[in-house]
Amino acid sequence: MKFTRRDFLKTALSGTIASVLPLGGLRILKPGEVRAEIEKTNVRWGFLVDTYKCVGCGFCVKACKLENEVPYDAPVTRTWIERYVILKDGRVFADTPMGGRDGFVSLKVRETEIKPADIAKAFFVPKLCNQCEKPPCVQVCPVGATYQRADGVVLVDRSWCIGCGYCIMACPYGVRFFHPVYRTAEKCTFCIHRLVKGMKTACVQACPFGARQVGNLKDLNDPITKVILNERVAVLKDEYGTKPQVYYLGLDKNVR
């Protein structure tokens, strides 16, 4: 029998399809998924910010930059503090010079000198990654370099990130940036390397006033879980449907 090239191609193609199709019905689990399936974690890290307690000292930003090796003088940062000044005439001024790293020591908001007598209210709001329940940054990563752990924390694999910036665009909170040295997407990790050792995050530890707290939202006896369940708390930009897990006490409507 003559076996032509056409016959060969036909047989090869149908053979390939026949062997691949049944495999399509199976799903290959990632190592993380297998682990999560086995362990069924009972940890969900969450964060509580008490804005009444924050004085804008900037210790948290300093501590974060040092702990997580984000270049100290680069204008990018994993966590930052915003200052809001609302005048009696209703005008809102807000700023975050160097992410509030050096504290707020001037009455100037950018170029405008604010007279203390004109101020109706003023406060500070610390910001960090919301470790969303439905993180848009994870959704849009084209190579799966950013992922969500079973305990809710979203991380970036520096060895796999291609640096396309799609996740930076997708985050409604502006917490992501390119690391100046590694040139990969960078974000707050809730200091997961510390949490897994039973320590607090660097910012929580550095805060002299207890404005920042981290805890396990699945543990009903955790101090922050109690506050979130019993007090009136708010989250940032819930209209995006991301289900953020950083809760705020005393959040003002002027906060962006």
């Binding site: 990018v76 930052w80 001024f93 807000a94 700023d95 975050t96 930076i168 665009m169 390119f178 962006r256």
Partner: peptide, 12 residues
Amino acid sequence: ELFTYPNEFIYW
């Protein structure tokens, strides 16, 4: 100009 988050730049 005015109030922006610290990490915001023209990335694209």
